[in-house]
């Protein structure tokens, strides 16, 4: 089986400071991988390198494209990479306002990716937008409302709808539940889990919330100071961490 994403030796430096160093792993179709670590551990740098938002200093991010099979996205042309990020990839930002157009209605936000890939039938676009709003549990009656009138949880769900409407195969998520109430988090997590299962999505989720990865991720990578210090099955890493830092991380979580 060909990995959907094959990350090889990704390194990113900020001057003398290491963002992330020599990270490698394979992600297979349908797999969800969590990346945890404290602030500054390099997890967001890594995510941005993989998603094409940052150019790594070394390494490859090989994605199994529909057209040409496995292709290094770091060296592919920018138009190709941007096309990928509109079609096969999705990126869910921590802050919904980074991932949404706040001045555009919910329907327009969801429809943008469709129009970006060439859909030109207003009725169809609107129909699909309404369908996706329902799928992320937003009343389709709010299709013409702007996201500024939505709650934080709704904005985050709208961001997910906007990203998934073109049927991507890989979703990058940066702290998707950060800043949300616990009750809202649970709803979002359940939604994401259902979508991952029903659409057969692969996902890479960066978070510092161990409960989030336990619920969503099949596999886990623990990062510290730019390095991956431990990786494995999510429940194995959380329940039987081997590295000193992972043990500290797991034991630091307050039990409710």
């Amino acid at each position: 089986m060909t990995p959907l994403l094959s990350v090889k030796g990704i390194t990113k430096r900020y001057g003398a400071h290491i963002g992330c160093a020599d990270v490698s792993f394979d992600l297979y179709p349908g797999e969800v991988m969590g990346i945890v670590g404290e602030s500054g551990s390099g997890k967001s740098t890594l995510l941005n390198c993989m998603a094409g938002h940052l150019v790594p200093d070394a390494g490859q991010v090989v994605f199994d494209t529909r057209v040409a099979g496995p292709t290094d996205t770091v060296t592919m042309s920018e138009p190709e990479r941007r096309m990928l990020s509109r079609t096969d990839w999705a990126f869910v930002h921590q802050h919904a306002r980074d991932g949404l157009r706040m001045g555009v209605s919910a329907g327009g936000n969801v429809g943008e990716r469709l129009m970006a890939v060439g859909e030109r039938h207003y009725g169809d676009i609107r129909g699909k937008a309404a369908d996706w709003l329902e799928r992320v549990e937003i009343d389709a009656g709010r299709i013409d409302d702007r996201p500024t009138t939505f709650s934080g949880g709704m904005q985050q769900r709208l961001q997910i709808a906007r990203n998934l409407v073109t049927g991507p195969r890989l979703v990058f998520m940066d702290e998707p539940t950060g800043g949300l109430d616990v009750s809202v988090q649970a709803r979002l997590l359940d939604l994401v889990r259902g979508l991952v299962r029903d659409m057969g999505l692969s996902a890479i989720i960066v978070t510092h919330d161990l409960a989030v990865v336990r619920l969503l991720a099949d596999r886990l990578m623990v990062m510290k100071s730019g390095h991956v210090i431990e990786a494995g099955l999510t429940d194995q890493v959380l329940d039987d961490p081997q590295h000193a830092y992972s043990q500290l991380l797991v034991s630091s979580v307050l039990q409710v």
């Binding site: 194995q236 039987d240 081997q242």
Partner: peptide, 9 residues
């Protein structure tokens, strides 16, 4: 038991 499930390394 947990080892047999792969939960413990």
């Amino acid at each position: 038991m947990r080892m047999i499930y792969g939960n413990y390394l």
